[in-house]
Design a protein around this nucleic acid. Sequence first.
RNA 1: GCUCGUGUGGUGUAGUUCGGUCCAUCAUGCCGCCCUUUCGAGGCGGCGACCCGGGUUCAAAUCCCGGCACGAGCACCA
Length: 480
Amino acid sequence: MKKTGLKDLPNAVNGNVVLRFAPNPNGPLTLGHARGVTINSEYAKNYDGKVVLRFDDTDSKVKPPLRDAYTWIEEDYKWLTGKEPDIIVRASERMEIYMKYAKKMLNEGFGYVCKCSAENFKKLRDNSKECPCRMKDPKENLSDWNEMISGLLSEGMAVVRVKTDMNLPNPALRDWPALRIQHTPHPMVGDKYKVWPLLDFQSAIEDYEQGVTHIIRGKDLMDSTRKQTLLYNHFGWEYPETLYWGRVKIHEFGSFSTSGMRGEIENKNYSGWDDPRLPTLRALRRRGFDSDAMRDFWIDLGLTQKDISVSLQTIESFNSSKIDSKCERRVFVRNPQIIRLDENNVEIERKLVLNKHPLNEIKGHREWDLEDLDIYIESTDLGANEIRLKDFADVEIQDSVGIIQSIDRTDKRKIIHWLPKTIAKKAILTIPKGNEIIIQEGMMEDIEIMKNSIVQLERVGYAKIESNNDDVVKLLWLHG
RNA sequence: GCUCGUGUGGUGUAGUUCGGUCCAUCAUGCCGCCCUUUCGAGGCGGCGACCCGGGUUCAAAUCCCGGCACGAGCACCA
């Protein structure tokens, strides 16, 4: 008995579930982010809950936020889920809250300002030794804190730590850092703050503030859960239910990082964030991927901790089943060769009426005029002598002449697509392949070519019509 | 090294909590067939897996022990 959709969320109360999706706004969303958006929004839908879109923009130095990315991410989120997030928060706008809790931590003695160097502290930590700063009383910590936030101390000179236990078996959890000094101006709030929280602190506080009930995150963040649980214990809060997913690799896309792409785009190696070779949602959307298909794909993968590697083909297959009934058929003949048809005393129709969709899922027809008997076929189809022109007739090819043998199909010969010269228009198909762009020129059926629509080029594959002017149709490859 | 996690066909996934209904689900892939309407749409059929070794049991993908493999964290990144 196969369950459809996602497994139940542990301890979830219908109508009382709060989830969150927390990207770093340093670029638009990628295919990988789509998993987080999909899983969280799907659970919210199933439990009549809410999703918080939270921008974790607390690092202006290593991963500087991009002003435009906030809007891009909201657009991408909306495209994929079909709705706005229930709540949107920006960490950089909520600094006062984090500062308040930091101060409280210092006041109540479960946090301290540590002035040890990073290397020094690591040495002590790895030997389960406490650092001298740990002994300070709240008063001294508060005065050090004031030095930090006033800008008196420069970067690297001090950090606020959460007191845990130096004998914890996992060294990563011992007195972990919560806030650090950062003087690089923030693109959204400038140089107003000299101290910024680290992910584990900011995220923990914000989850509490937003009443998050379920956190779904990568398993690389398992230690974050443990660290944050320790902090929650100090504050007397109850930590949310936490679920994890493993890493996903898509065969066809190498290892792209958002910051890597950003650099490549700035260096003009890609035309922009929607360059069809890129794994961004905007690129995929531009090519014609359907948002529901993408959601179906991620829901089908489900939520497991396994590190997986999947093929784009799987997503494409989901996409085909979603879009096929909406895609009209058209002919596109690559590397066209002219063939002159010879009626050979066979009585033929001078007007062919073809369905827009083979199963007639899209009503309507395309009418082909056959007054002129010059037609195009693909040069690679020239090899066989006897072929069948799809939806028309069996022909024998001899020296660029196609001798019509029969209107009815008489044998199992290859069926090829073709196009009367009179209704052919020049077209260029752009195919992103790995890091390459392949250009295929040919002739396309010049019937109702509508910009931005996706058509199935018979025997070729799906493509999006990107533009159509007087001389040429520009097509962008989707998939086979 | 320390800490944590994961191992079901080519790729994913269901089943593992409470052992039998599992000679293991579904999708994708591959192969083949059908369709005078696509080699690439659609329909139909086929191929193919429980990491290894012990143990418990009438019975193990499921429980126990021991290996092995892979991955992640150990940042004043997110």
